[in-house]
Every structure is written in C-alpha cells, then in structure tokens.
Design a protein around this nucleic acid. Structure first.
Lengths: 191, 191
DNA sequence: GGTGCCATGTAACGCGTTACATGATTAT
DNA sequence: ATAATCATGTAACGCGTTACATGGCACC
C-alpha cells in the first residue's frame, strides 16, 4: 500500500500527472526505491476506480493530470493517523531463512550468518557514503537514509547475537519430541 | 520468495504434503507469519512446473506428498549461500510515510511519529511477553522473535531521532529551489 | 446427525515487476 | 537524421490474501 498512499499524498500537494508523480516519489525517498512507471498508471486507475482520485482533461502538452478527491483526503488522513502494525509488514525473508537453515540438513548456519553479515556491513558503508553526499536541506531523504542505517545496524547486532546463540546452544537429544526422520510419518501419520 | 524457498527447505528434510508444510512452516517461525494454505498449493504447483519439486502418488490417507528434486537442491543451496541485499527488500512503508508526511500540507508529523512510537512500544511489550513464554529449546523460533525485537528497538530509536531532527530543523525559506505551490507548473512546466 | 478438524484444491483480486508499443519533444 | 528523454499506456507474470467448494474422518 506504500505506492497507493504515496501517490495520494503527492496529489494532496496539488494536481500531478503520472511522470511527475514517479519523479517526486523517487525524489523524496532519494531514489532508494525506484518506482516503475507502469505501476503509477495502474495504481492511478485503481485510485480513480475507488473514487479517491479524479482524472483531469488532457492538457496542451498531452499530459493527463489527476487531482485528489475529498474521499481521497479522508483516506489519506486515515493513513497518516494509523500506525503500521506488526501484522501489516511483509514476512522477513532473512529471519525465515535463518530459522529454516537451523533445521535443514547439510546447511552451515554459521556460513549463512557470516555471508549475510558481510553483505550488510557493505550496505552500511554504502549508506554512510550516501549520507555524506546528501544535502542537509533534504530532511525527508536524510531520514529515509537514517532509517536504513538503523535497520542495518540492528541486523548486524542480531546476526552477532545469532552466532553467539549458536555457540552456546546444544541441540536437544532425540530422546523425545523432535523429529527429523526422512519421511515424516512418525510426526504426522498416526494421529 | 520466502515461501517458495521455505517450502523447498522443508522438503529437504523429507517428503511432505501441503498441510504438513504449512504446519511446519508456521511452527519454525512460531506462527509469526501465518501461511495461507491456498498459497502452499499454488506455490507447490509453480515449484513442480519449474522442476524443483516432484509430486508423489497419492497415498492411503488421500494425501499428495511432494519431494525435492536435485535441481531443487541446487536452488536451495544457492538461496542459503547468497545474502539478502538491500534491493531485494520491499519498500519500507513507515519510512515512506514519514518522508511524505514532511511535505504534505496539513499533516502533523510529530503526531504521526508519536502514534507510531506508541504502537511499536506496545509491540515490543508483546514480544517480550512471547519471549518469556517460549521454550528455550526452540532456537529457531527464539531467534525469529529476537529479530523482531531488534527491529522494533531500532524503529523506536529512529522515531526518536526523527523527532529531534524535526525540532532542530528549520525549513529552507522559499528563496530558491524548493517548490510547494498548488499546481506544479513552476517545478516542471518550464524546462 | 451435526460439528469440527484434516486435506486438497480453485477463483478472484491487489500489489509489484518486467517488458513492450506508441508517440511527442528535445538535443546532438 | 537519430538518439535520448518525456509521456501514456497495455500485457503477462509472480507473489500474496481472502473466500469458497469439496470430501473424509472423528467425536459427541
């Protein structure tokens, strides 16, 4: 929903057409998340269908600007007023990968952790470089950048935490409960 | 791709059918990200189509187990071996929301930050509760939990950072560059 | 006999991405 | 002239979610 609401927010500043919307969206987020132009048009169509946006007549330059409707303003206000909850976020692929690596035979979990750590550290360096190059006037873009820095730092800390947990952890002996036979008939077959 | 690769990883432990896959997936991630059963079947179909998985004949119980193929094992190994890069991740809705809130007229950015902060703090409490209730044996689930804790903590720190930036920041006077007129003809019209 | 869980699917839709088609204007 | 950029769209596909349909089996 980021794009949908993002476009709505941009239209709250005044009427815009597709290409402008993409450019402004990418500008305020510093080009971090490039926005496909095709998606702008399809999203505008859906917004129009839902009555949150209204298409204006094509102007001299052959451009088709849109404006936000009152209903759109309500929706936008609601978006800004409601927090993003845990359930709204997409699955965390890294967490899932590590969780599964732990119980997949033949996977060197430590290697997975280390590879990710190196990659994230590189990202962190790149972010620092970008931060140094950013104009101090552009608050929005700086905050987005810093959001990514905070996240990357947290990820590194978590990866280190994972490693030390791996060291400490002794897997429970197969006395009971845990099952990792080849075919899972024991775990599920008889019930 | 989390689900696709996740299922592949589960099948590496041995042959499984749809319902089992969902249950195991949710178990190793502690039910944090519930997995729709419909998606399991469609994903299995695509995996089969791509030759990463093979359907086995229906068994006595009317179940249709799948097994991983050699090609599937290659794909899985690749997944574990390659880190998750910045470009792979989805857009961060919170960062986008805040960036846009900054330049949308009539939006109380401080209120947005505070609302989100409260929500994230509540999440953090909930996570602490869950952590206390978790069995120490289940390493995967604990690590997933802790990943979310680290992320939530980083988010709170970032929100605080945003607030203090807002306080410090004086928006650049409209002498030059910045444009926020109603219709954006000045910004784009003449070029 | 009904309720509920196990189990397998299908359909419809939204979001997101890539690629392609078509023109107009601008720059070299 | 032709190459690049601006600008608007369409098509196809993957992933994800919700809802619905169907059937078997167990339990009360």
């Amino acid at each position: 929903m980021s794009v949908r609401h993002g476009l709505l927010a941009l239209l709250e500043r005044g009427s815009r057409y597709g290409y402008q919307l993409r450019a402004e969206f990418e500008r305020t987020t510093g080009g971090t998340w490039p926005l496909n132009i095709g998606q702008v048009y399809t999203t505008l169509s859906r917004l129009e269908r839902d009555g949150l946006v209204r298409a204006l007549p094509e102007n001299d330059g052959g451009q088709r600007p849109y404006e936000i409707t009152d209903e759109g303003r309500v929706e936008l206000t609601l978006w800004f007023a409601s927090p993003i909850e845990r359930g709204d976020r997409p699955r965390d692929e890294l967490a899932i990968k590590l969780a599964l690596a732990l119980t997949t035979p033949g996977v060197d979990v430590r290697a997975v952790v280390q590879t990710q750590r190196s990659s994230t550290m590189r990202t962190l360096q790149e972010l620092t470089r970008l931060k140094a190059a950013s104009r101090e006037a552009d608050l929005a873009w700086r905050l987005v950048l810093e959001s990514m820095v905070f996240q990357a730092e947290a990820e590194v800390r978590w990866l280190d935490h994972c490693e030390s947990s791996l060291t400490r952890y002794r897997p429970p002996r197969a006395e009971e409960s845990t099952v990792d036979t080849d075919d899972a008939e024991q775990a599920w077959g008889k019930r």
